[in-house]
Design a binder for these strands. Sequence first.
DNA 1: CGCGACCGACTACACATGTAGTCAATAAGG
DNA 2: CCTTATTGACTACATGTGTAGTCGGTCGCG
Lengths: 121, 121
Amino acid sequence: MERIAEGEYAVMEVLWEKAPLTAAEVADRVPADRGWTLATVKTMLSRLLAKGVLAHEQDGRRYLYRPAIRREDYVAEESGRMIDRMFAGRVTPLVAHLAARDRLTPEDIEEIEALLKALKS
Amino acid sequence: MERIAEGEYAVMEVLWEKAPLTAAEVADRVPADRGWTLATVKTMLSRLLAKGVLAHEQDGRRYLYRPAIRREDYVAEESGRMIDRMFAGRVTPLVAHLAARDRLTPEDIEEIEALLKALKS
DNA sequence: CGCGACCGACTACACATGTAGTCAATAAGG
DNA sequence: CCTTATTGACTACATGTGTAGTCGGTCGCG
């Protein structure tokens, strides 16, 4: 699967949230703090089309864009890549790391324990 | 902290493993499948120096390079960034995702449960 | 039917990154 | 001492990315 750059990812998020959308609609929904003009969003859309991670259908004179890959699949690939790189492909060190870094609240711990218990049954 | 590109990261790994090292020594230790020449490694080293994530000390006519940031800190930042982006900053969905994607073996589950139990006490 | 708003295509440009070559200086070895 | 191997500095260049402008065509409104 093609890599999706950080900025492009913001556009994908919009379309994973709701699709199909026109370019203008996507621009409206991109987080305001990006400060992008419509032109910038259009560039992103073309590039994502070229990468094959977006699809488009003609709607009169415009395009309607929609994701061509599932968010779930992309996230799987990307998070897997990070785990391979930084945690040698092992998940436990990642969890240990998160715990040590206080990214795990007591509630998280409860939730994860429940999740794991469910997994075992 | 400055971002470290994918290729540059490979150089950092070498120096986190052992430091200080000369450029030639780093080149020797970079995973062979990168297929990098010494020149390429030197470019990486300069860029990492410029980014401030490496430090160097003079050793005669050469430099000895060593990390200026801790691997732990970098990994914390990078993994945090990913969790923020893809899992809205929540850890539980990440673990759920890993579970659903079969990245969790039964042994992982055992280990993580033990880890969490230890955390609670 | 004519004009203005809007659309995608194309162009632009700076900076990052992967990948490597050149070169002047110098240390080391004979 | 003189040659040679080595070193960091600098240069090079293609591709990716962030950010945006221009332009020819066309749809809708009056």
